[in-house]
Design a protein around this nucleic acid. Structure first.
Lengths: 239, 239
DNA sequence: TGTACATCAGTGAACGCGCGTTCACTGATGTAC
DNA sequence: TGTACATCAGTGAACGCGCGTTCACTGATGTAC
């Protein structure tokens, strides 16, 4: 955010000094505000306080700027997920759940990155660098699923880790894009998107035979702030 | 699709005769091709073989055309889901699952409607008519969840139907937007989006205590067409 | 059945706008000697 | 330490383009009598 308030030409002299970064930040702001489709190269230049020709010193075209943002987004996403996973501490299920929450938090806190990564229509699969970054991020979820699968209760078939990873990803993405952001077409929910996703993941894991009876710490902590009759376990009090 | 190939001006005379419909169809084609953001009013007119001013006889502006499409999409979506639910026949779980598949099929077969409805950034909640249509579609899922919840196994807490409905919705939407369409940023899957969603829903329902051991007819039917080692139950053969 | 007229659904030219992009340029910076 | 010069990172004017929108208009259709 440090470049959001641009110094005027007079203040900063002929050379900007940090234009590439300033353009990325400006674009992030614009995407967060108007969506990936509504962001223009010219606007980014304007926000950075620079002539419309200046960005061409740093990016071949609009698409390259957008790709850079997606790239950075995937890297940051990977870091966030890795940190949430924390190598499975204190126990695999708790950590797994934390990954789901981190996913949602990222979508909420970094809507511009999220848009660029998943909703901009960028052909991720045609750009090897971008594809690799996306793959690295997904592999965090996959590795976590791998560890979880290895813990499958004896006597039950062991679920394929890749499938579990895809399931968790789709749940997270679904909740995030339907309910996770404040902008448009939203619906009033009886619970927060976070709680909704947490319950979904817990029920899913239970369906695979994992024990999920213990209350998660965060669910317990949040219970006081909820309206009466709200969930205390994965889906609330029995009726 | 009957209006995709437009008759020339000479062939059809001064009056088009079916312009409103032709514009809707043209817009659907453009949205399917280039996304909701990439569709322009002028382009739709061009595709309909008509001057750029003509559409204004039928739609106040671009947004009204887009809303009409979303509106029609929600209506069609509702019809498809209602028919898939088939009032819970032959049994509630089978029918419920079929709703999930119908969701996915709609997203795949009607990408333009789906985009307009969920990815166009239209402020659905600010347009009462649109909101009502969206609500009617969702209420099909909700009613199905209601029936399913009423069947909860005795001795287990009964899950809130609204939550179940939101979970199913988010799963379907997640799978649909990540894997359900051919256009961009797609990933090679070890199984089809349909199977992925089916397994996800079955595991979820099992997590709620519903019996899901019987093989679904469609899963059995499809088994022959799969590569070796593919799922036969909700998630495949035990390892 | 024919005619006058209102209404409807299109035309096509024009507008202002903002965008992406290019170009020759210029001011600032860094480096070789 | 000072100077000449290459390089870098900006400028600002200009372009062509397609868009959304408006306007006075006109051809076709339908209806009253």
């Amino acid at each position: 955010m440090s470049w959001r308030k641009e110094r005027s030409r007079a203040e900063r002299g002929y050379h900007h000094g940090n234009l590439k970064e300033a353009l990325l930040q400006a674009a992030l702001g614009l995407i967060a505000e108007k969506g990936a489709a509504g962001f223009t190269f010219a606007d980014a230049a304007r926000m950075a306080g620079v002539s419309p020709a200046a960005p061409y010193r740093h990016f071949r075209d609009r698409d390259e700027l957008l790709s850079s943002i997606a790239q950075r987004g995937f890297d940051q996403f990977e870091a966030v997920l890795t940190s949430a996973w924390d190598d499975g501490r204190p126990d695999t299920i708790t950590a797994f759940e934390r990954v789901g929450k981190a996913y949602l938090a990222f979508a909420r806190e970094e809507p511009a990155f999220y848009s660029a990564m998943f909703e901009s229509g960028l052909p991720v699969d045609l750009n090897p660098t971008l594809m690799a970054a996306s793959e690295r991020a997904f592999s965090v979820i996959r590795a976590a699923a791998e560890r979880l699968a290895a813990l499958a209760p004896p006597g039950r078939p062991r679920p394929p880790a890749l499938m579990m990873a895809l399931h968790i990803w789709s749940m997270s993405h679904g909740v995030a894009s339907l309910f996770g952001r404040g902008d448009a077409a939203r619906r009033k929910l009886p619970m927060s998107a976070e709680d909704l996703l947490e319950a979904e993941v817990l029920i899913y894991l239970r369906g695979l035979g994992f024990p999920t009876d213990r209350r998660s710490p965060s669910a317990t902590e949040q219970a006081d702030q909820r309206p009466a009759g709200q969930p205390s376990g994965p889906w609330g009090t029995p009726k």
